[in-house]
Simulated scan of single mutants.
Amino acid sequence: MFGGGGGLNPRKMEQMMKQMGIDVDEIDAEEVVIRTDEHDLVFTDPDVTKMDARGQETYQIIGTPEERERGAASADEGAADADAGAGVDEGDVELVATRTGASEAEAREALERHDGDLAAAVADLE
């Protein structure tokens, strides 16, 4: 937008954007899901910035997405609610599954067996 920003100091950049009528806000997002025809892109703990340029809102997402089967992200939301009662953190389930290549169900079971201990669950599945 500004030619890469080069050596501009962030404060000066912010002042220039305000002069142009652009408001920038950081959004404390836990997860962002982008649904396509083929799959879902799920950004866990992304950096999200909202820019409002005279009523036109633009969102910038910084992070590395995990590609999931289409609609799987919605199913995970229900699983996370069910897990909240069981004491297993959904983020831990995803971490163990990603690290070991196990399914989320296998990762969840391993975490439950080891009372939420990440290292023990990973060791169990590797």
Rank of each mutant, 00 (worst) to 15 (best):
M17F: 15
M1C: 06
M16R: 14
G4K: 11
T58N: 13
R99F: 00
R11M: 11
E112V: 08
Q19R: 13
E109M: 04
R113T: 11
L41D: 10
D40V: 02
G5V: 06
L8C: 07
D83F: 13
I27L: 14
A121T: 11
G6T: 12
D115N: 14
D83A: 05
I62Y: 13
T44S: 13
D83H: 06
A121G: 05
I27N: 07
E109P: 01
T100F: 00
Y59H: 09
D23C: 05
L125N: 03
G78T: 05
R108P: 07
D23M: 06
L8K: 09
A102L: 05
V88W: 00
G87S: 07
T44D: 07
D25T: 15
A73F: 03
R35G: 06
D45K: 15
T100D: 01
A86W: 02
K18H: 08
E126S: 12
E112G: 12
D81K: 03
G63N: 07
Q15Y: 14
D28W: 12
E112A: 15
H114L: 00
G55P: 05
Y59D: 08
E30H: 08
P10C: 03
P65D: 04
T100G: 00
D28T: 12
R11N: 14
L95T: 15
V48R: 04
I61L: 01
A73H: 00
G116V: 10
I61Y: 06
I22G: 01
R54I: 08
G21L: 00
A79C: 08
L8M: 14
D89P: 04
E57C: 04
G101Y: 03
A53P: 08
T36N: 07
R70S: 11
